[in-house]
């Protein structure tokens, strides 16, 4: 188990290497010339050339990639073209709201979606099942920003239960933190809930037909324990797999959600950076998100062994 963990951590290195190469190539793939933008409309071609050379943009790709990679490995993500602040510093400032939002969304989504899927499978074919499936289709097909604006309009503007936008750091008390993040978490979570509830239902339907569920019933085990102990543990592997995969959607959704609710997170940072073609910031954020995704899926792989003793590494 320990050896496997070490092996898996080592295996993430080439993955991250490829991600780094891709992230760095963004500079070349994306349209627009940062040197020209910085130089402004009135600049002569000589000015642009001078700025390009000062940014080091005139040297060969591979040399610049290796230099960049070497600096990244030392924790230096470069300096923002616009603010002249270190990128790592800018990201660090924005991390808390983003991770708070994701954590809250994940907790909220799992605690809703799993019971929904389980009950839908248990009562399959009834109106409860149909209602859950209807919700799943809606949650998946309505975009985050639509859900977000509807929620903000109803629960913040009309009912005044929650603040319309903004963020309160956790250090200012948990009440404000939760109250500010509730609507964003619900908006971001709706698609995630739909995805997980669907998978939970499908897997549970299969599991509930297994012989061992009948055995449990024949022993006198109650319905709740059959569903949430005997069956759910068997359904856990597909569910956590989809949670891991769905995490990518959560990252993308967080960027949108932060814009809708004006949360000063990493998502907002990257949107602003894209509008300004602030490449070092874009690279830093994408690299950070990729790294998070790889780590989440590593955790998912390790969780398999917790839920299914037949899986051994």
């Amino acid at each position: 188990m320990f050896a496997y963990t070490v092996r898996r951590v080592i295996a993430t290195i080439p993955v991250m290497g490829i991600v780094a190469l891709f992230v760095f190539s963004l500079l070349y793939i994306a349209p627009g010339d940062p040197a020209a933008i910085i130089a402004g409309d009135q600049a002569t071609p000589e000015d642009v050339e001078r700025i390009r050379a000062s940014l080091g943009l005139d040297r060969p790709f591979i040399v610049r990639f290796l230099e960049w990679l070497f600096r990244v490995l030392q924790g230096d993500l470069g300096v923002s073209i616009f603010t002249n602040l270190p990128v790592s510093h800018m990201i660090k400032q924005r991390l808390e709201p983003t991770f708070s939002l994701m954590l809250l969304t994940l907790t909220f989504a799992l605690s809703c979606a799993i019971p929904m899927g389980v009950v839908a499978a248990w009562k399959h074919g009834t109106w409860i099942d149909r209602f859950v499936m209807l919700f799943a289709v809606l949650g998946f097909s309505v975009p985050v920003f639509v859900v977000g604006y509807v929620l903000a309009y109803t629960f913040a503007l009309q009912l005044d239960w929650f603040p319309v936008q903004g963020y309160t750091p956790l250090s200012n008390g948990i009440g404000g933190w939760v109250s500010n993040l509730t609507l964003p978490a619900v908006a971001l979570g709706s698609a995630f809930i739909a995805l997980i509830a669907r998978i939970t239902r499908a897997t549970m339907l299969e599991v509930l037909n297994q012989d061992y569920v009948r055995t449990a019933k024949a022993k006198g085990v109650g319905q709740r324990a059959i569903l949430f102990v005997h069956a759910l543990k068997n359904a856990a592997v597909p569910i956590i797999t989809i949670v891991g995969i769905g995490f990518a959607g959560l990252i993308g959704g967080a960027v949108v959600t932060e814009s809708v609710f004006a949360i000063p997170g990493v998502g907002r940072l990257v949107v602003d950076a894209i509008l300004r073609r602030d490449y070092p910031v874009i690279q830093g954020v994408v690299l950070m998100f990729s790294f998070t995704y790889v780590i989440v899926n590593l955790i998912v792989d390790l969780l398999y062994t917790v839920f299914d003793p037949r899986i051994r590494y």
């Binding site: 012989d211 061992y212 055995t215 449990a216 024949a218 006198g220 085990v221 102990v229 068997n234």
Partner: peptide, 20 residues
């Protein structure tokens, strides 16, 4: 069930819960 009347099933390979 399981107390006064209990049952043994045909398929020992699938009648036990694999994760408990």
């Amino acid at each position: 069930r399981g107390n006064d009347i209990s049952m043994i099933f045909q398929e020992p390979m699938t009648s036990l819960n694999p994760v408990l």
